[in-house]
Amino acid sequence: MDLLLKILIGLLTVIIAPILGGLIAGLDRVITARFQSRQGPGVFQPFWDVIKLFGKERFAVNGFQILYVLVSLAFAIGALLMLILMQDILMLIFVLAFSTVSLIVGAMCVRSPYSKIGAMREIIQIMAYEPVIILMAIGMYMITGSFSIESIINYQVANGPLFFQLPLVFISFIFILTIKLRKSPFDFSMSHHGHQELIKGLTTEFSGMQLALIEITHWIENVLYLGLIIMFFGNNIYIGLAVAAFCYFLEIIIDNISARTTWPWMLKISYSFGLGLALTNIIWLYLKGGIM
């Protein structure tokens, strides 16, 4: 019975997450257009785009591309399921990293230099954000004594949200989110917007159905990251949802007011500011003692 329920929840997640992610992407475009005092497309525009891409002619540079795209989608769904079914957070982070890595391999397996440079920049992005995400998991472990999401949530129900013990980690996580959501200062491996100096970076050589699947993967990842924000407020999901919505809004503002940077700048700032904040928080937890 328990297993059946879990399978049901899993199926529901797989159906609802892309829809939610698409709606978020649509709202993103509407709000961005309003910021630029334009009318903007409808909220359902991302869905039309993806359906159209599915209907286009299929051509691939080589047969491996679609394989890597599918693997990337599968790992993203796997990571989301681990969050919803409250599994191990460390494992979740690794599965999520696999999703990105397989996209990188997919972009590397063609001969286009734009695609390759995009993939290399994506690797640099992983270098920038992965330490902070791992520190986030470590911080949660130091407080709750477990990597299991279920016990992290249970701890918060009993002792209040983790946010008050990990405020700096939370801030650096929001910082990292800008990279992961592919928002403006750090969107140099693949931008949301039509034009970029690298044609389209990572996705230059993907077209039609492959591009549609990459888009869906991106939506699922977005939902997952918003879910991770909610984890900081595990005792009350409504507060978590409100904070997640606010953070996404903040990202849209940042996207609109900032210009794209270069990768050395991103590495510098994410290692000094992002990693610094997270480490300070962890050291503070350690010095406070009593836990671990």
């Binding site: 475009r29 005092s37 009318q39 903007g40 389209k200 077209s207």
Partner: peptide, 21 residues
């Protein structure tokens, strides 16, 4: 530009022929 704003019809000016219609 905001005056004509073709994006309201879903038009995006892409830089990649493989994504274009």
């Amino acid at each position: 530009t905001p005056l004509y704003d073709v994006e309201r019809f879903g038009v995006i000016n892409v830089g990649n022929p493989k994504h274009a219609d």
